[in-house]
Write a protein that binds this DNA or RNA. Structure first.
Length: 482
RNA sequence: GGCGGCAUAGCCAAGUGGUAAGGCGAAGGUCUGCAAAACCUUUAUUCAUCGGUUCAAAUCCGAUUGCCGCCUCCA
């Protein structure tokens, strides 16, 4: 078993070899909590959710750390503009932490609905101010940073490798057009490690340079290395953070620790709406909450995972609906397999064939995910397996033992890892409607036997209106909630 | 202007040197009192265009065109 990942640093797929055998440390850039989580967040965190789950079920012990940016993320570039959270707080006329708390809860709520597993733990920038100050101080002492009037800037010229991730060379960076030169910086590319707080700034801390707050990039450097080590395995995040955010993280961390920052950079691509990037400033973003109101979590995951994580996902309502339609076959299969297991069928004409196929499919899906998390390939394999298994079921050729085996494979990949197979719903109401349904089905059967089809149809229609679907099969009727 | 990526059927989307997965949609069929579900068949002689390398290319190289992202906050 070899897992390969596309490393943005080397720009090619590489075999994934953990620093410490059997253990993986992964850090993923989390959201800045000042607004609603949207489809873009969903793509990113579903992607890393699948990556982590796949690593885990491949036998690796994973420590997955994700940050919550709750301070210091400016609206403009790294050294001007306003703190995003503070700005939102001013608009809402609340304390900044109220903004932070509200959107953190919303984020976690949405992620849970999307079946994104909790990381090993979340870390917050505001809870690591001391460590960040220490890091900045250390960078100043080592000559990588300088202080100007309460601000501390990182000197990019002190790190010759600056630009190695994004492929940008310092000398190529033309000054002026979009990068506004700030008076007190030595180089326009220098970025803020510590910002002096303006008089009205609420979230601020004491530091050797006066009251202020940390720059955006330093939090990730500090928290990632604190919990995962000076050099760790995987750093993930959205493509748009490659520059400047990740580039700055590398510069800070490596000049601070004199060690490589991380081994594999994994970047997920963007979500577009009608081919255009989804962005807050463009006003075309779709929130998770809104989408979850109209689609199942599984449908959203299937939509996201049907595109490779390194390709952009183009959002259309039609695409999500199509993903949901495809999913029903998977759900149906699960129900059908459970039925065979419950009936404890012993005979199985196709048992040998099915068992063999099941093993092959299991290996194939693993292979697809091993190959840089090819989720579309994995889903395709799963779907063609569904067709094959349905054929066996149609011929009544499976025993309970083999059905259980297949069910385990389908639930492992479709359910546990990809998260596109809905969990079997338990009792949703206080009254168990199963016996009632049984009675109605028997009654309806009698009507059918007596050729009173109008009555039988009326029962079926009334139940449909009530949210229960009757399906007549060769072996009698079955029902399910719509 | 600089850096990077992508172009595969009506739509979504794998495949990265050996002769085009899968899903949605559509059409026909089997089953069925009718439905639903499921299954079967059909739906790209061809992978943006033009050259080149090779016995062999969607896959490698070059050029062209189009689209997208980053270079300012963004997952």
């Amino acid at each position: 078993m070899t897992i390969t990942l596309y490393n943005s640093m080397s720009r090619q797929k590489e075999e994934f070899v953990p620093i410490e055998p059997g253990h993986v440390g992964i850090y993923v850039c989390g959201p800045t909590v000042y607004g609603p989580p949207h489809l873009g967040h969903a793509k990113s965190y579903v992607t890393f959710d699948v990556l982590v789950k796949h690593l885990r079920q491949s036998g690796l012990k994973v420590r997955y750390v994700q940050n919550i940016t709750d301070v210091g993320h400016l609206t403009d570039d790294a050294d001007a503009g306003e703190d995003k959270i503070q700005r939102q707080a001013r608009i809402d006329q609340v304390h900044p932490y109220e903004v932070v708390d509200k959107w953190t809860r919303q984020y976690m709520n949405d992620m849970e609905k999307l079946r994104v597993a909790h990381p090993s733990f979340y870390v917050r920038a505001s809870q690591h101010i001391g460590e960040q100050i220490e890091a900045v101080q250390s960078l100043v002492e080592k000559g990588h940073a300088y202080v100007v009037d309460g601000n501390v800037y990182y000197n990019v010229e002190s790190f010759p490798e600056y630009g190695k991730l994004s492929g940008r060379r310092l000398e190529e960076q033309k000054e002026g057009v979009r990068v506004e030169t700030r008076g007190d910086k030595r180089n326009p590319r220098d970025f803020a490690l510590w910002k002096k707080a303006d008089p009205g700034h609420i979230l601020k801390w004491n530091s050797p340079w006066g009251e202020g707050y940390p720059g955006w990039h330093i939090e990730c450097s500090v928290m990632a290395t604190k919990y995962l080590g000076k050099t760790f395995d995987i750093h993930g995040g959205g493509l748009e953070n490659k520059f400047p955010h990740h580039e700055c993280e590398i510069a800070q961390s490596e000049s601070l620790n004199d060690a490589p920052f991380c081994r594999y950079w994994v970047h997920n691509n963007m979500v577009t709406v009608d081919g255009i990037k989804m962005g807050k400033s463009l006003g075309n973003f779709r929130t998770c909450e809104d989408l979850l109101a109209r689609h199942s979590p599984e449908a959203l995951r299937a939509f996201v995972l049907s595109t490779h994580y390194r390709s952009p996902s183009n959002y259309t309502e039609e695409a999500i609906t199509a993903a949901a339609s495809g999913l029903t076959r998977l759900t149906q299969l699960q129900t059908a397999l459970l039925e065979i297991v419950e009936k404890n069928v012993s005979a199985g004409a196709s048992d040998n064939e099915a068992e063999k196929l099941s093993g092959e499919v299991d290996a194939k899906i693993r292979e697809r995910l091993d190959d840089d998390i090819d989720s579309p390939g994995a889903i395709a394999t799963l779907y063609s397996f569904v067709t094959e298994v349905n054929r066996f079921i149609g011929a009544s050729a499976l025993s309970a033992r083999v059905a259980a085996l297949i069910l385990a494979v389908v639930q492992k990949w479709g359910g546990d890892v990809l998260g596109i197979l809905p969990a079997i719903s338990g009792k949703e109401s206080e009254v168990d409607i199963a016996p009632i349904m049984q009675m109605l089905i028997e009654l309806r059967q009698e009507m059918k036997a007596a050729k009173k089809f109008d009555v039988a149809d009326a029962i079926r229609n009334r139940l449909k209106d009530a949210g229960v679907l009757i399906e007549d099969t060769r072996d009698g009727a079955r029902w399910k909630r719509i």
